[in-house]
Amino acid sequence: MKLGVFTVLFSEKPFEEMLDHVKALGLETIEIGTGGYPGNAHCNPGELLENETKLKAFKKAVEDRGLTISSLSCHGNALTPDADFANQSHDAFVKTVQLAEKLEVPTVTTFSGTPGAYEGAKQPSWPVAPWPNEYGDILKWQWQEKLIPYWSEWGQYAADHNVKVALELHGGFLVHSPATLLKLREACGEAIGANVDPSHLWWQGIDPVAAIKILGKHNAIHFFHAKDTYIDQENVNMHGLLDMQSYANMQDRAWYFRSVGYGHDLKTWADIISTLRLVGYDGAVSIEHEDGLMSIDEGFQKAVANLQQVLMKEPAPDMWWL
């Protein structure tokens, strides 16, 4: 496995300065934002696809530092009823897939998307209960009329360009759990897989180790984000896990994001990394930092230091003792 970072964390730094900063901390690979929610501060797919000189310079800057690109991220919502953002998200996805093929990047990370509750709705709708029955009807309509048709076409498009699509299992989107990921994968093909981020599994009450085992049996893990979550049980008792308070209201929230090792101990993270190896995942461990208690650099550096203790970089040995 290679330790890396989702570089939107350093969007204020110029591209090559960001690369130098990442390299100096001993990282090996980078995940770069190309549009959607992460923005495209370091990588504008349209510009690079239209200008071969810029594309070569971009690739050379990464390679000259001994780094690789693990994924291009265009996390957006191509299914939203907001036509402008849906079109932006879709365009970013298509161009990101095209760029990934040119750069020989194996994976594009994004969200599955969430449509409205019905045709003509103004906002996305994320049903979380089967009753009253209209919620179940909404969910069925969303899957049959929006989600599966979209990813049947565009998952195949990615496959045709030798790119895998890693959908982040994130609340608020229709694919947010192992079951929803596998359901979509069965309908749309094996180009669709999971971007496993333990932070979003913990707050849903899902054990990341168990989720990795489930997905691993289907060879359905395409990417991995390293981010932690702290669960405040006293606040869970008040607000539940579907807490709609601002992330900034950390004293009262049921849960909030932490840097790796500050929500769960390193034994837990060692189990996660070991299980990734157990199921055959040998890709990037991409640090995502959204810790409201630490500065960008401090939180990032602590995540690097903690993961270096548990990451396994050398190939597993032959079992000489057998």
Rank of each mutant, 00 (worst) to 15 (best):
208 P>T: 06
57 A>Y: 00
79 L>G: 04
293 L>R: 08
137 D>E: 15
60 K>I: 00
10 F>P: 15
167 L>C: 03
229 T>E: 02
292 G>M: 05
126 W>F: 15
158 A>D: 09
33 G>C: 08
317 P>F: 03
109 T>S: 12
271 D>I: 14
90 H>I: 11
91 D>N: 10
289 H>C: 08
15 F>R: 07
290 E>L: 08
322 L>T: 09
45 P>A: 07
38 P>W: 07
77 N>W: 11
23 K>I: 00
150 Y>R: 11
104 E>Q: 09
255 W>L: 02
281 Y>E: 07
163 V>F: 02
322 L>E: 11
289 H>P: 06
125 S>C: 15
3 L>Y: 11
131 W>A: 10
41 A>T: 12
76 G>P: 02
5 V>R: 01
164 K>M: 12
41 A>N: 08
110 T>P: 01
100 A>C: 12
119 E>V: 01
268 T>Q: 12
10 F>C: 15
120 G>Y: 06
227 K>W: 03
242 L>K: 10
184 L>A: 05
160 D>L: 04
22 V>C: 03
220 A>S: 09
60 K>E: 11
10 F>D: 15
128 V>W: 08
73 S>E: 10
74 C>M: 03
122 K>A: 12
319 M>G: 00
295 S>W: 01
192 I>L: 13
98 Q>C: 07
104 E>I: 00
321 W>S: 11
75 H>F: 14
278 L>A: 07
164 K>V: 07
80 T>M: 13
17 E>A: 10
162 N>T: 09
226 A>F: 06
167 L>G: 01
109 T>E: 06
177 S>A: 12
161 H>N: 15
304 V>K: 08
83 A>H: 15
314 E>T: 15
293 L>F: 00
221 I>M: 06
257 F>S: 11
322 L>G: 00
53 T>I: 09
180 T>W: 01
152 S>M: 03
66 G>M: 05
17 E>C: 03
301 Q>T: 04
187 A>Q: 13
33 G>Q: 03
74 C>S: 12
83 A>D: 09
12 E>F: 12
44 N>C: 05
17 E>W: 02
188 C>I: 10
79 L>N: 05
138 I>F: 01
196 V>A: 04
89 S>E: 03
35 G>K: 07
305 A>E: 15
93 F>R: 13
259 S>F: 02
45 P>Y: 00
208 P>L: 05
25 L>C: 08
243 D>N: 11
23 K>S: 13
120 G>H: 06
309 Q>W: 09
317 P>S: 05
155 G>P: 13
23 K>D: 09
41 A>M: 07
211 A>F: 02
270 A>Q: 12
102 K>F: 03
8 V>H: 10
183 K>G: 05
31 E>L: 02
171 G>S: 07
78 A>E: 09
274 S>T: 15
301 Q>D: 08
107 T>C: 10
257 F>L: 14
300 F>G: 03
134 E>Q: 13
217 K>N: 11
115 P>G: 06
24 A>G: 15
235 N>V: 10
273 I>K: 01
5 V>K: 01
19 L>E: 08
31 E>C: 08
118 Y>A: 13
307 L>S: 10
88 Q>N: 08
